[in-house]
Design a protein around this nucleic acid. Structure first.
Lengths: 151, 151
DNA sequence: CTATCTGCAAAAACTTTGCTTACCC
DNA sequence: GGGTAAGCAAAGTTTTTGCAGATAG
């Protein structure tokens, strides 16, 4: 049975950020903390604009440019990853555990899931010289909410 | 063993376009033929801008806006699909057979491959109400060319 | 003929950059 | 203190839109 990820627990978010920043000589600023918290606390793979509005509620001085720069910085630190999607804006994910995506073709939502069976995927031996590092499965379909809407 | 897709054969490209257009009351224009040919004849999952420049060589009057509109129309007709990627531009694929992607983290190239084993993937039974339609596996890693460059 | 499509230009949406001031370490 | 980062505004990209003239069916 699959395990749906509820959301990244806010446990050691600050510690992880601090450790990674220190290691790279980068500063731990309130903006970085807030942006990282927002991504880590969401399971919706938010866009820069979404995070901007969410964080801005508590930090009115925040600028969108800072959000963009912060995302680049967090990716560089290896704390978040950009999520492949077919929309027109970037999306980010703080879940770095191996996992897969349920992509709703109707509302474009992306939901994480993990599954032991899928994690044991066997790749073909010969990939024409391509060196695989990790595997992510995208399941395209219709989410429960959108099915409901069709009734 | 995996089968690398060489490229969609240009066989019935025109017939397919004509049939789909007729069915939807859309017109078969030189621009649509040329854009569809360009995507179908590429295995590089091209961007609108790339297709624009390629087709424009033979059709100097072509405008980028038409390329965008044509892509939307071809997607609507079900002849091509937008490819999920984490760059900042759209990419399209005329290969509608079930297949998977080798994504190079270094040069961002996306290469199609198919594999009988992967095609028999077993999804978990319970996806929290999500209704799966199709599955696409993304293998992230380093392509042969980029490995060579590192030597 | 007529409804649809093209090309153009302008607007909108998204992302990056440069620079001055602020502030973490 | 010194160097990194934030905020602002401007510029750069990518995508969408509206409309007048062109064209496929």
């Amino acid at each position: 049975m699959p395990a749906m990820r509820p959301r990244t627990p806010p446990d050691d978010v600050l510690e992880r950020l601090t450790a990674h920043c220190r290691e790279s000589g980068m500063k731990v600023t309130p903006q970085r903390i807030a942006v990282y918290r927002a991504v880590a606390g969401s399971c919706a793979h938010p866009t820069p604009d979404e995070v901007f509005h969410e964080v801005r509620a508590d930090m009115p001085s925040l600028s969108l440019a800072t959000v963009y720069k912060t995302f680049d910085c967090l990716v560089e630190l290896g704390l978040i990853a950009r999520v492949a999607n077919d929309g027109s804006t970037h999306r980010y994910d703080a879940n770095l555990e191996p996992h897969h995506h349920l992509v709703c073709g109707s509302c474009d939502s992306i939901t994480d899931f993990t599954d032991a069976g899928l994690s044991r995927l066997r790749l073909p031996r010969n990939l024409d010289g391509f060196a695989p590092e990790k595997v992510s499965v995208q399941v395209i379909g219709t989410c429960e909410d959108c099915q409901d809407d069709l009734r």
